[in-house]
Design a protein around this nucleic acid. Structure first.
Length: 286
DNA sequence: TCCCAGGACTACT
DNA sequence: AGTAGTCCTGGG
């Protein structure tokens, strides 16, 4: 997908394989919201807006955005037309692909993804959003943009010496101690983004599993949404039900089956399935 | 009041 | 090795 520098921002010409609303509303990120014109939120320490016009999308930041950063964030390199075409060979997936066409996998900041998806367990999206927002308010940097206050998601260094007590305002319950463990492991270098990025999917996932509160599902979310591991197939309760009912796969074989069905694009298939299920709650009863 | 929500841990067999 | 119970919290 082509992205061009335009004034002090960027422009993406109308493209059926980039729908900002679907992309930011398919559950992969928690810090963007709808506006009248498009989407606004915080990532990479900046306020980012995406506004849809007749000819395409304009992307701006409160301060200048690196071309490479935004290109990577929106996963401009991958060819979603080809990927979707490939996944459409599976007739069960086909309707989900048509329905969700335009979803892209965001490549998000590692630390934010790690903490956000720890918070996400046994939780619902509105509350996850609130908790992540509160976390940023408490520990991140304040940004004022067009009369509105935003907060960056804190870097690990900004969270030195915090305890579960400091997280009490989050009201995130037992997850607080998990967050503390994650912060400690990142600060000690035990969990290190650049080394994780250099690992293959399975090795990276296993390393992530050493963090308390990070199980298979959360680890897969981190692999997919921040490490660019598209083989990852986050299996939450919805996906579990769908795989059991649509593909008649026993629970234990879901991950394996995803690899044979979708291979290196498992993560993309997962997002389309998830988006489809959330809006067509057919496969909801056990 | 009880039950559950985009899981994971712990303590049992 | 595999699996129930349990865990914080807020909304229905």
């Amino acid at each position: 997908m082509e992205i061009k520098a335009y004034k002090n921002g960027f422009f993406i010409e109308n493209n059926k394989y980039f729908d900002p609303y679907k992309t930011f509303d398919c559950g992969q990120c928690f810090r963007f919201k709808k506006t009248e014109k498009g989407i606004i939120g915080v990532a990479f320490g900046r306020v980012i807006t995406i506004e849809e016009e007749k000819s395409g999308c304009y992307i701006y930041g409160n301060s200048s955005l690196g071309f490479d950063v935004i290109k990577s964030f929106l996963d401009c390199e991958n060819k979603y037309d080809e990927i979707e075409e490939f996944l459409k060979n599976d007739e069960i997936m086909a309707p989900a692909l048509s329905f969700g066409c335009g979803i892209r996998i965001l490549k998000q900041e590692f630390f934010e993804t790690l903490i956000s998806f720890i918070i996400s367990q046994q939780n619902n999206i509105p509350r996850i959003t609130k908790t992540v927002e509160k976390f940023s308010e408490l520990f991140g940097d304040k940004i004022e943009y067009k009369g509105e206050i935003f907060h960056t998601f804190p870097r690990a260094e900004q969270l030195k010496d915090i305890t579960v007590f400091d997280l009490e305002p989050l009201r995130c319950g037992y997850r607080a101690s998990y967050i503390i463990d994650a912060i400690e492991k990142v600060l000690s270098g035990e969990i290190d983004f650049s080394s994780l990025k250099s690992m293959d999917y399975i090795t990276a996932k296993n390393r992530l599993l050493t963090i308390k509160g990070v199980g298979s599902k959360v680890a897969d979310c981190i692999c997919l949404f921040s490490l660019g591991q598209f083989s990852a197939f986050p299996t939450d309760t919805w996906i579990k039900k769908a795989m059991q009912q649509l593909y008649s796969v026993p629970e234990k074989e879901i991950l394996q089956k995803s690899q044979t069905l979708f291979g290196e694009y498992s993560g993309i298939a997962q997002q389309f399935l998830f988006y489809y299920l959330r809006y067509n709650k057919k496969v909801h009863k056990s």
